[in-house]
Design a protein around this nucleic acid. Sequence first.
DNA 1: TTGAAAGCGCTAACAT
DNA 2: ATGTTAGCGCTTTCAA
Lengths: 336, 336
Amino acid sequence: MTGSDAGRPVTMRDVAAAAGVSVATVSHVVNDKPGARIGPETRRRVQAAVADLGYRPNAMAQNLVRGGSKFIGLVADAIATTPFAGQIIHGAQDEAWRHGYVLLVANTEGNDAAEKEALAMMLEHKVRGVIYSTWYHRRVELPPTLTESDHVLVNCFATDPGVRAVIPDEIGGGRTAAQLAIDAGHRRIGFVNTTTASPARDGRLIGYRDALKAAGLPVDERLIMDTRPDQEGGYAVVPALLERGVTAVCCHNDRVAMGVYDGLRERGVGVPDDLAVIGFDNQEVIAAHLRPPLSTVALPHYELGAAGVRVLLGLDDTAVTGIVSIPCPPVRRASA
Amino acid sequence: MTGSDAGRPVTMRDVAAAAGVSVATVSHVVNDKPGARIGPETRRRVQAAVADLGYRPNAMAQNLVRGGSKFIGLVADAIATTPFAGQIIHGAQDEAWRHGYVLLVANTEGNDAAEKEALAMMLEHKVRGVIYSTWYHRRVELPPTLTESDHVLVNCFATDPGVRAVIPDEIGGGRTAAQLAIDAGHRRIGFVNTTTASPARDGRLIGYRDALKAAGLPVDERLIMDTRPDQEGGYAVVPALLERGVTAVCCHNDRVAMGVYDGLRERGVGVPDDLAVIGFDNQEVIAAHLRPPLSTVALPHYELGAAGVRVLLGLDDTAVTGIVSIPCPPVRRASA
DNA sequence: TTGAAAGCGCTAACAT
DNA sequence: ATGTTAGCGCTTTCAA
C-alpha cells in the first residue's frame, strides 16, 4: 500500500496509529531529531509503517508551524525570449536546491501587473526572499512590493542605496575581450560598440581601453565605432573596419560578430588570418557554430543566478555597496 | 505601517484586533465570501485595517486547511541546454497562472537522483499534479515516484497505457515542411533526415511522403538521405544534394539547414533561387538571422507547456489514447 | 524512552 | 450581521 492510492493522503497520524505510537514519536524518527531518544525497536516499527503506508510529510503543515517556508521566489522578465534567462533560473535553481530551498518561478514579460501579482503570490507563500532578475544587464526601478520581502537583484541594479545586486563584470569582460586579441599578437584592434546606452556599452569599452593601455598599446579613437547591436549592424560596419586597417576587432556581442563574418566573407577576407574577430555573450547557438567557431567572452548567467541565491541567504559577503560583480570568462575558439 | 517591517508578519488576528472584529469576519471580507453578510461599515473598517497593517494572507495556512495546494510541479530535464525548455516552462507558467496555480519548477539535467528528489519535494508540497517534460521529443521511462501524483508528460511519452501526454505533431510538421516547398512550385524536393532514431526522424519523413503523394508528386527514394543532425551534417550532404538535382530541400532541423547554407555558399549556389532550403524547429537565433532568413517549421514548445497544464487540470479533452498532439506551424521567411 | 497538548494562520460550520 | 470553535498536519515543549 502506498501514497499513490486515490484516497485521503497518508498523514502522520496514520503512521502513528499503524506503528502504535504517538505522532510526536513519529515526528522524531521521521526528522531524525538529534536530542530524541527513541528505542531501536520503536524506531524500526515507525520506519516500517512509513514505508508501508508510503507516508510523505506535508510541507505546508511544516512550513506553517515553523513560521516560514523553504521557498525562494524568482521573478524574471523574459523566461522565453532568450536562453539567458534560462541559465539564470538554472543557476538559482541548483544553488537553492543545494541549500534545501525550492524555487518559485514567475515570468512577467515586463508586464507590471503580472509582476505585482507574482510578487504578491510570493509574499503570500512567505518566501524566504525574492530574486528579481532581468535578461539583460540594466538599471531597474524597484517594484514597491519587492521591498516587502528580502530581495536581491540579479543581472540588474537599482540606484536606491543598499539594494543588493549581482551583476556581470562588464569592465573586466571588455578587458578580457581585448586581451584575447592582444595575446594573439594584434596591435591594431578595433572595437565595435553598440549605439544603445547600457552598462554593457560603457563597461566593455572601458575594459577595452584599460587592456590596451596596460599592454602599452595606443588607443586610437578612430578604431572605436558604434553600430546597431545586431547582425545587420555588424555587417554594415565591415567597410569602415577594413578601411581603418584593423587586424582584430572586438564586437559588442556575438550577433554583431556574426554580421561581421558575413561582411568579411563577402569581401573574401579570412577569419582569423586576415582579421581576427572576438564576440561577447557566448551565445552558444551562434558562437559555437559559426565558421570558424567564434572566440568570445561569456556572460556568466548561471553564476549570476547561483550567486543571487547565495547573497540572498547571506552565504556570500557583498561589498559595502551591496553590489557583487561576477567575472566574464574568455571562451577561446578559432576566430582569434 | 506595512508588512515590510522586520517584525512578526501581520496575521489575520492582528487585523481582527485592529478592526475590532473577529477573525471570521476578517476572513469573510478578505475572501469576499459570497454568502457572507457583512455590514458596510464593518467591511470598511476591516479593509482599512488590512491596508493599514499591510496584511497578506498566509497561503500555507490556507492550503493546509483547504487540504490541497495551488501548486503544479514541472520537472524538466534541461532548463539550460536549450531555449526550448524555457518555452515549455513559459507556456506552462502562463497557463497555470491563468487558472490560479503556481509553478514549482525543478531541473534534473537528466540525473535520476535529482529527479527523485524533485518529485519527492513536489509530493510533499501536495502539488495538484506534475508535468514531466523533456527538451526533445522522445519516449521515456516513467520514474516510479511520478505515478504517486496526478501527472502528464510533455514533449515525451510513455509506452505504459493510459499515461496522458502532449507531444508535437511530427507527421503534420513534416507535411507542412514539404508543403512549403510544394507551394513554391518545386517538384524535385529532397529530404535530409537525421541518422539518429527518434519520433522526429520517423514522423517528419512520413509527413514528407504524405505531402508529396497528396500533391501527386513521385517519391524518389534517392532524394531522401541521412546525415548527422548538426551543421557539419548539413554541410556534408550538400554535394549529394546538388548531384541529385533537387531544387528544394527539407532539412531535419535548422542546424542542418545552417550547414547546408554553408555548403551552398561555398559552391556559389544561391538560396532560394538556385535551391530552396527549409528547416525545422524554428530556432530563432539561427533561423531568423541566417541570410536569407530561413523558412522553417516551428516546434510548438509554448503550446506544449500550456496544453500540458490544461490536460492536467482536465480542461482539455484527450483522445482515448491519452495522447494529444499539437500542430507544428510553418514559419515563412525567405529561403523557400 | 515515549506521550499529551498547545499552537502555527486560516476556513467553515454553527451559534448568537 | 458577526462571533465561537473545531480542526487542517505538523513540531515542540513539558510531563510522565
